[in-house]
Design a protein around this nucleic acid. Structure first.
Lengths: 158, 158
DNA sequence: TTCGATTCTATCGTGCACGATAGATATGTG
DNA sequence: CACATATCTATCGTGCACGATAGAATCGAA
């Protein structure tokens, strides 16, 4: 993400002035994610979750039936090599179960336990806290979300 | 970032409908960073750098004189526990040197080697490639950068 | 100037995150 | 049925990223 404009020719001018991280779109995203993780931390520590774990739990709370690892992977955009150990940790905490699908034994279905289901109720205050801390209006946040999602989808296509 | 609006009361209604990751501002940022890292990967692999390493190199290219670890830490918003091993790897690649400051022996000053300096010239095309791949105009990207930076700074304050 | 407090970097342990790869199951073609 | 191909999850190695902590150097106040 040195992805802002450069007027001088990059091929002929070997001393193009360097873009500082502060100038780059990529750095704003990168540092915002870390700041967001820090903002979530106290809320999630009370639940014993990390941020990626919370993200997977959110996917499960909003899912209809027990999704497969592949379905989760596509939804949260993480590889199976990331998800498998993460899901094993959530299983060890007693929040979900992992079971081979009888129809297709290659797939593993993830189902919430009662403890996993009931945890959702203890997360409902978090959204408002973060939104307030963001110092932005709900409309601004929604617009930002849509812009960032559009950027992400375009980058994935390219 | 379940940080969009909830109309039902979170205290009295234990079954608040769950926000899917796709609804959350935090997830858009989180997934956009991963997409951005993937977009950078082919360009950075040619240089033998990871994205965080590239970020630190960018900070050094735009810095006036040899900054300390603490100065870099504040600029790229990473802890010394992250920077120290990262800087050691860049040192092992011959891109920079780490030396104790004579004035204040607690501090370590980071200076680019010739190889580190000259690498900058080979990065000048990357910005344009990513900007094009983003499918957004320069004005949109700059506006997005400023919005995301504002969000980050507000979250850091809270 | 002496010693308590602060500053600064490094170390350690845990948990992502990914590419490469393996291994098991399923599918399709003959 | 046989066998090549594809799909799906898991494993392994590398590199972040952070909190907690340690240890050295500096600063400050009596």
């Amino acid at each position: 993400m040195t992805d802002t404009a450069q007027t001088s020719d990059p091929q002929t001018d070997p001393k193009t002035p360097a873009l500082s991280p502060q100038d780059m779109v990529c750095f704003s995203l990168y540092s915002a994610v870390h700041a967001m993780t820090q903002a979530y931390r106290p809320h999630l520590e009370a639940l014993g979750l990390t941020y990626p774990q919370y993200l997977v739990m959110s996917a499960l709370w909003s899912a209809g039936e027990a999704p497969t690892v592949g379905m989760l992977s596509r939804q949260v955009q993480l590889e199976s090599s990331t998800l498998t150990p993460l899901l094993k940790r959530l299983e060890a905490m007693g929040l979900l179960t992992r079971r081979r699908d009888a129809e297709d034994e290659r797939q593993v279905r993830i189902a919430l336990t009662d403890a996993g289901q009931s945890m959702q109720g203890r997360t409902s205050h978090i959204a408002g806290c973060i939104a307030e801390q963001s110092g932005m209006s709900v409309d601004e946040l929604l617009a930002l979300r849509d812009q960032v999602s559009r950027l992400r989808d375009n980058l994935r296509k390219g």
